[in-house]
């Protein structure tokens, strides 16, 4: 480590700090009293230090607000979607990677084409379809449309392809069925890939905005992302800046914690998701 390196770290710390400031500011504002914020947002050090300090915003959030409920919804939807995507993608990915059957190439091509269809291009027909079925304002309406993501299948397919053939062949010689091989041999091996896919899906589900916006009109089924959008659209009349910011902090907490714990996987997930889909 030479002097150049330390200079580099210092030089990079400045933009890194600037990068952190908006988030820091949100956290700091959430700990300041609303009546102070109504007058000025820069009490101490441009408002970056929460003085005067209060935790009332969080208390109020948990006493009156819908935020905890929305939070729970987000958790249900995100976990549901993650499990669903994992189930659908691992099975299909394995079949496409390791098994022989007619029309395999056709199915692969159809999946590839599906990669090109963005959510935004199908949300209207999906909306009318779910309306006809009377499915809106439910958890399955929030979960189902994103189950069939070809990206997950491709991710798993690539992983399964890389597993050496001989493991499977040994099991075949022992007369083990394909489903058992999948369940007892392949799935345990696929854990890292599944982790990657799970994180990718969870982040997507937690942060999705457009679909919940059109599908959920009842507050019971708002996700935290949607709920947050609904309270920021009328700042002037809302309960105060501090409380809105506190909701923002609560909404971000799980994904930030998830990220800090599983940083390595998140980065892998982003790299894999990024370069393929």
């Amino acid at each position: 480590m030479n002097r150049g390196y330390y200079w580099l770290v210092i030089a990079l710390s400045i933009p890194a700090f600037i990068w952190l400031v908006p988030t820091l500011w949100m956290v700091s504002l959430s700990f300041q009293p609303n009546d102070v914020l109504a007058r000025t947002t820069s009490s101490t050090a441009f408002g970056l230090v929460p003085l005067p300090f209060t935790a009332d915003n969080y208390a109020a959030l948990f006493t009156f607000g819908q935020t905890p409920w929305w939070f729970l919804n987000s958790l249900i939807v995100s976990l549901g979607m993650t499990l669903g995507v994992l189930a659908v993608s691992t099975t299909a990915g394995y079949a496409l990677a390791r098994l022989d059957f007619p029309f395999k190439r056709t199915i692969l091509v159809i999946c590839l084409v599906g990669l090109m269809v963005p959510e935004q291009a199908v949300f209207i027909p999906l909306y009318t379809m779910f309306a006809d079925l009377g499915w809106h304002n439910s958890y399955h309406a929030l979960i189902l449309p994103r189950m069939a993501v070809p990206i997950g299948v491709f991710l798993m397919l690539q992983f399964f392809r890389a597993i050496p053939q001989d493991i499977e062949e040994a099991a075949r010689l022992d007369g083990v069925g394909w489903l058992r091989i999948f369940w007892y041999i392949m799935l345990p091996l696929a854990r890292p890939a599944m982790m990657t896919l799970a994180i990718l899906t969870f982040l997507y589900a937690w942060n999705d905005y457009l679909w919940p916006l059109v599908s959920a009109q009842q507050r019971e089924y708002f996700t935290i992302t949607l709920g947050l959008a609904s309270i920021q659209s009328n700042f002037a009349q809302s309960e105060g800046l501090g409380r809105v910011m506190a909701s923002g902090v609560i909404a971000s907490l799980p994904v930030v914690i998830l990220f800090l714990i599983f940083q390595r996987y998140v980065v892998q997930a982003m790299t894999a998701g990024g370069s393929k889909g």
């Binding site: 299909a92 079949a95 496409l96 098994l99 199915i107 070809p150 299948v153 007369g175 489903l179 999948f182």
Partner: peptide
């Protein structure tokens, strides 16, 4: 122990959930 399903049957069984959701929520819309 004999496997109950042939390779082809297993493949379709494993593919089914994906194909159904894919057809319903992407191709059809």
């Amino acid at each position: 122990r004999k496997s109950y399903l042939s390779q082809q049957q297993s493949a379709w069984l494993l593919l089914a959930p994906f194909l159904v959701t894919y057809a319903l929520f992407l191709v059809y819309p």
